[in-house]
Amino acid sequence: MKHLVIVLSLFLISSVAVNAQKYFTKTGHISFYSDTPIEKIEGHNKSSSCVLDLATGKMEFGALVKGFQFEKALMQEHFNENYMESNKFPKATFKGQIDNYKDIVPTKNGKVNVKVSGKLTIHGVTKDVTTDGVVTVNNGKIDADAQFNVLVADYGITVPSLVKDQIAKSVKVKVDVTLEALK
């Protein structure tokens, strides 16, 4: 009987620990920057979702394409209608893996440089992406930051020759999320 209690409580403790391995946010910030000498364009999405499972290192992101906000209404319109075709492809996703996820200890504050690789889907096209990032543990919350470039042409997005000098061929994508433990 005593053994059973010990086994049960061990089981409980371990299952609590396993539960605490998942971190998420629904208000992550994903932004992108297209810089050319003629025009700087940036879009910000502040309601991106991200789930990180520290038991496996798996990481998933999702963002609504229409959720990207621009300084100018016309940029937003062109982004949605001409380039991203957001009515046809409403979501952008990333499914990947932090290679060195074991270095992240959620109970220990500090910075960890990570390597992330996975599949990025934009405009209905999926490509392999690898990037460096920084994960910061801060009192039980996990900050994840990364920056990488995507080639517009890789994702089947065609830019008319008339405006080709206004839109960068390589767009910088920034990811900045603060994850909380999933209770």
């Binding site: 309601s47 991106s48 979702s49 609504l64």
Partner: peptide, 12 residues
Amino acid sequence: FCTGKLMDIVLS
């Protein structure tokens, strides 16, 4: 403005 649903529905 309704921008769709991910896990949550987002209004911008």
